[in-house]
């Protein structure tokens, strides 16, 4: 399951964070080999701690965000930024569309917890959001684009995959 979320395409997206990780790693190695000031448990300890903590933190965040983003990408229609509930927007097609079929059923529960969604019943927000829901907000742009939600990625293969939309999905 993990390996399905972290497929080749996702890993390619994540390379952007592998580079700083690599730089930090290189420095750790260099400082281990070249140490003109010698080793002192307190100073060198903190030195390695700074780099190792940063390395781990960035690694963990990259993993978590990759999981959330790539997970959603594989289970839900993907729109260009700012166009998700635009009236006439179509989900953008991505190259790996044929993988989706067998991934859908697995990945759904995998990412369920990530997707707290619009109607989340967060205790604290209840009081406030309730009273706002009851009031008529005709001018709000809560789009009614059910058709797009139900639209299945696989059937949308006809969507013109012109250079722009494929680039945006890079």
């Amino acid at each position: 399951m993990e390996s399905k979320i972290f497929d080749k395409e996702t890993l390619l997206d994540l390379t952007v964070n592998f580079i700083p990780l690599g730089i930090i790693l290189t420095f750790i190695a260099v400082f281990a080999v070249v140490s003109p000031w010698g080793f002192d448990i307190r100073a060198s300890g903190i030195m390695y701690a700074v780099m190792i903590i940063m390395f781990t933190a960035l690694g963990v965040l990259t993993y978590l965000s990759g999981k959330a983003i790539a997970g959603d990408e594989k289970t839900k229609p993907v729109y260009s930024q700012g166009q998700a509930f635009l009236d006439d927007s179509e989900p953008i097609e991505h190259e790996e569309a044929d993988h989706d079929v067998d991934q859908n059923d697995h990945a759904v529960d995998e990412t369920d917890d990530d997707e707290t969604g619009a109607g989340a019943d967060n205790e604290e927000t209840d009081a406030e959001s309730d009273e706002e829901v009851t009031a008529n907000n005709d001018e709000e742009a809560t789009a009614d684009n059910d058709e797009e939600v139900t639209a299945d990625n696989d059937e949308e293969a006809t969507v013109d995959n012109d250079d722009e939309s494929s680039k945006s999905d890079n």
Binding site: V78, T142, V149
Partner: peptide, 19 residues
Amino acid sequence: IATIFTQRDENVSWANLDI
């Protein structure tokens, strides 16, 4: 943080949250 995590439209997934 609370707004972006809990109040998104259902079409707005992590994959197409705007930049």
